[in-house]
């Protein structure tokens, strides 16, 4: 009793109850130094950027919403959406092929993935643009019959087609690996359970494997979308008037190279930020720890009596 009183009444340095004092984090000298150095660098960069007249911020502002820039942005968005969508579909097919028990099918997918992941996208894009040199005429027809139509490859592989083909085929290889990774995250027991119920291969895929692989596929796909958005700038080498090429076309005339590159960069940055918000939301939603339950699961309210067997 007495001891307790003694401890209680022990005054802190300035009379405050010791038990109620907040606990403060330790700040090292390094932390203070870091604050100062990083602030100085930040201020320096900002100062230089805002005072250097060569940045020509008025030109940036003028072209930021310029019609041809916006048209380029639209094309960039189109290329991203189209090649992601087609690439994902083709990637899904490749992932399923890769997991096939039939050797030649699995090997074909394997070779495809190796080829397309092992060469730079830029090279692939230029290759598809020039594929007419390899096959001047593409003829589609039924084998061993005379029924066929020849298509002029040069006309077919217009810059935008080449861009779409190149980006799609490359993306498919990456998506195939992501999807395959998702498939392999589904437990063996799940597949055995489906087998023991007599499910067919396609049924297993649709009802058991794909729904469970989604949590690991979706966040990675979000990352790919962001990467693809910036990756579309590569197709400017084919003369496709997407965002970067639109900026290039303007500064080729006006010689305002830096301001227009800033315009393009700002748009890339804005779009990436816009995309990364839903991306991080998706990642949270599908993170293993928080989503052991499907999205539509009801919270557990055990109003029923605990179900004893009998």
């Amino acid at each position: 009793m007495q001891q307790l009183t003694i401890e209680r009444s022990e005054p802190g340095m300035n009379g405050k109850d010791s038990a109620l004092k907040p606990r403060l984090k330790r700040r090292s000298t390094f932390e203070y130094v870091a604050w100062v150095v990083c602030s100085l660098i930040g201020i320096g960069v900002l100062f230089s950027v805002s005072t250097n007249p060569n940045f020509k911020w008025d030109v940036v502002a003028k072209y930021f919403t310029h019609e041809s820039i916006l048209r380029g942005l639209m094309l960039t968005i189109f290329l991203t959406v189209a090649s992601m969508a087609l690439g994902t579909l083709l990637g899904l097919a490749l992932a399923i092929m890769r997991g096939s028990k039939i050797k030649p099918i699995a090997a074909t997918a394997g070779v495809y993935i190796t080829l397309f992941r092992g060469t730079p996208v830029l090279v692939q894009l230029i290759f598809w643009f020039n594929v007419a040199a390899l096959y001047p005429n593409l003829s589609i027809g039924i084998p061993f019959t005379d029924i066929s139509t020849a298509i002029d490859m040069n006309a077919l592989m217009a810059p935008i087609t080449a861009a779409l083909v190149g980006l799609t085929l490359n993306e498919a290889a990456y998506m195939a690996e992501i999807i395959r990774g998702g498939f392999s995250s589904v437990g063996k027991g799940q597949i055995e359970a489906a087998d023991s119920l007599g499910m067919s291969g396609a049924m297993k895929m649709r009802k058991v494997i794909i729904p469970q692989a989604m949590p690991s596929i979706i966040p990675a796909t979000g990352n790919q979308v962001i990467g693809m958005f910036k990756g579309t700038s590569l197709v400017s080498v084919l003369g496709v008037a997407e965002l970067l090429q639109s900026a290039q076309l303007i500064y080729a005339r006006t010689y305002e190279t830096i301001p227009l590159l800033i315009v393009a960069s700002l748009w890339y940055l804005v779009m990436t930020l816009l995309l990364s918000y839903p991306q991080s939301k998706l990642e949270q939603k599908y993170s293993r720890a928080t989503s052991r339950l499907p999205r539509k699961a009801k919270p557990v309210v055990l109003t029923d009596p605990e179900g004893a067997a009998r």
């Binding site: 055995e192 023991s196 009802k207 058991v208 469970q212 499907p294």
Partner: peptide
């Protein structure tokens, strides 16, 4: 033929 597994293997989805 029905099969019951040690680890249940219910479909979590």
């Amino acid at each position: 033929v029905g099969m019951v597994f040690q680890s249940f293997n219910l479909f979590p989805n």
